[in-house]
Every structure is written in structure tokens, then in C-alpha cells.
């Protein structure tokens, strides 16, 4: 469980006044949730993500992971092993030159006994569907496969929560699909709490809750359906809405009687079909 209270963070560059990146963020995320955090570049969403496993420490307010205050140095590794983190560029997260060695990196750091590491590595690779590549060299894999290896490396740590910081931003469409499928499975099958930082609306739709951050503040925090209703507001802060939602919105503007909470292409087709009848 994540509890963020009045989180404030400023970036202090040399010879200039501090720039407030996060202003009073309050969020609480329950176990097993799948939350997407939306925001355009520079909204502070990545900075927020880095607070969840104590890579950054709050300058004001508190972040609690399962009741543990992240700013307490003695619990640092406890927090980091509970909250895994996956980054944008898979190349810069993979440490070893063999897939299974890399997946073993985190448990090795946590002094897990060798037999247990073996078990965890095999399970983690199975979970992301990369078992057959366990003896491969990472640079021979595709972007999506590399990112899945990076995710396996985090799963092997057995975290309760995984924070993904734009994990699909550098991937091709196929890679995106593979990684999104893996993320959804981690949440629905394995019950891992997912915090997905993204600016891709179609990915945000897959979450069960969407938090929109703009200039360091939480603007909306609701289900995807309710969030994407606010087409004007989202556009104002420089975000898109899913294409299906946008089409429905434009049709409504033109005076058609169509639902305002359309999310997927299927729903949109259904609605338009109803109109035509």
C-alpha cells in the first residue's frame, strides 16, 4: 500500500531559484490496484514515481510504503525491495551479459540463497514469457523482449508494487503490445500493484484508475471512464484522449446523441451503430 501525504519536491539548479516540481501531492494506492499516472512532459510524473522507492526523498510531506516512511535510512532497502521500478530504456537497466544472470541480479543483492535464486529466476522468466531466452545475450533481443527481461529482473525481487516509468516509450508497436500484456497480467494474475507512468492514452485506458498530474498537482483522480469524459480539460493541459473518446466527443459537439464516456473502439462502434439504426 502506498500513502503519499502533502508531497513537495523542488529541483534546485545552480545559480537559479528552486523550481517547484511537485506541489502538495496526496494519493493513496491500495494493494492490487492498477493505477495509471498521466501527465505531459515536465508535469512532474517521473519525479513523483522516483519518490515511491526512495530514489528521491520528499522535501516536504511524507511517502509511506506499507506504513514505512521512505525517508528513514534504516528502512531504505526494505522499501526498495517492496517497490520495484522499471524505466524507459531497457538497455540501461540490464546489468549482465546473459539474460538469466541479469534476472538474478536483484536476489543476489538481497542475499537470497542460490537454490532460491534459481527458482525465482525461472519463475520470473516464465511470468514474462522469456524462459526460452534465458541463456541469450540481451543485445540480441528486441526492444520489447529486453523490456520484459528488465521486468523479470524486478519480479525476481518479489515486490508487492511495481512502478513503471514510461516502459513502452522507446518500443515499437509490437514491443508495446507485448509489454502492456505483461503488465496487465502482472496485475490481474499475480496481484501485483501497478503504478504505470505514461503519456499514452490507450495504455492509460487499461488501468482501473487514472491520476492526472499537471504542473506538480493532482488534477483528476478517477476511473478512466470518468477521467476521459473531460476532453476539454485534458486538452487544456496538453494531453490527448483516446481516439474513440475523441470521435464520440466530436460527434456530440455536432449534436449527435452519443454517450460521453466511450473508451474503446468497440464501444464507439457500438454507439455509432445505435445512432445509425
Amino acid at each position: 500500500m502506498i500513502e503519499v501525504k502533502d508531497l513537495v519536491y523542488s529541483y534546485i539548479a545552480e545559480n537559479s531559484k528552486p523550481e517547484e516540481i511537485l506541489k502538495n501531492i496526496n494519493i493513496s494506492i491500495q494493494k492490487g490496484e492498477f493505477v495509471a499516472v498521466l501527465g505531459h512532459n515536465g508535469s512532474g510524473k517521473s519525479t513523483f514515481a522516483k519518490h515511491l522507492n526512495a530514489i528521491l526523498l520528499p522535501m516536504g510531506g511524507k511517502v509511506y510504503i506499507d506504513g514505512i516512511d521512505t525517508s528513514r535510512q534504516e528502512h531504505l532497502w526494505d522499501v526498495r525491495s517492496r517497490v520495484g521500478m522499471v524505466f524507459q530504456n531497457p538497455d540501461n537497466q540490464i546489468v549482465a551479459s546473459i539474460v538469466e544472470e541479469d534476472v538474478a541480479f536483484a536476489p543476489e543483492n538481497l542475499s537470497v540463497p542460490p537454490e532460491e535464486i534459481r527458482r525465482r529466476v525461472d519463475d520470473a522468466l516464465e511470468t514474462v514469457g522469456m524462459s526460452e531466452y534465458k541463456n541469450h545475450s540481451p543485445h540480441m533481443l528486441s526492444g520489447g523482449q529486453k523490456q520484459r527481461v528488465a521486468i523479470a529482473g524486478i519480479i525476481a525481487m518479489k515486490p508487492d508494487i511495481i512502478v513503471m516509468d514510461e516502459p513502452t516509450a522507446m518500443l515499437d508497436p509490437i514491443g508495446r503490445r507485448e509489454v502492456m500484456k505483461t503488465i496487465e497480467d502482472l496485475n490481474s494474475i499475480y496481484g501485483i500493484t501497478i503504478v504505470l507512468i505514461t503519456h499514452n492514452m490507450d495504455e492509460a485506458v487499461k488501468a482501473k484508475r487514472v491520476v492526472v498530474i499537471d504542473s506538480g498537482k493532482v488534477i483528476i483522480d478517477d476511473t478512466p471512464r470518468n477521467v476521459f469524459k473531460n476532453v476539454e480539460l485534458l486538452r487544456q493541459i496538453g494531453l490527448d484522449v483516446p481516439q474513440a473518446t475523441l470521435l464520440a466527443y466530436e460527434l456530440r459537439q455536432k449534436g449527435f446523441n452519443i454517450r460521453d464516456d466511450v473508451l474503446t473502439v468497440d464501444e464507439c462502434t457500438e454507439e455509432i451503430y445505435k445512432l445509425c439504426r
Partner: peptide, 14 residues
């Protein structure tokens, strides 16, 4: 660091 690396002390090996 996110994967709890803190040097060689107490590290085990696959």
C-alpha cells in the same frame, strides 16, 4: 540501486 545493489558485501550468486 532500484534493484538493491549496495556493493559486494553479503551478495550471493546464482
Amino acid at each position: 540501486e532500484c534493484r538493491c545493489y549496495r556493493g559486494g558485501k553479503g551478495r550471493t550468486s546464482l
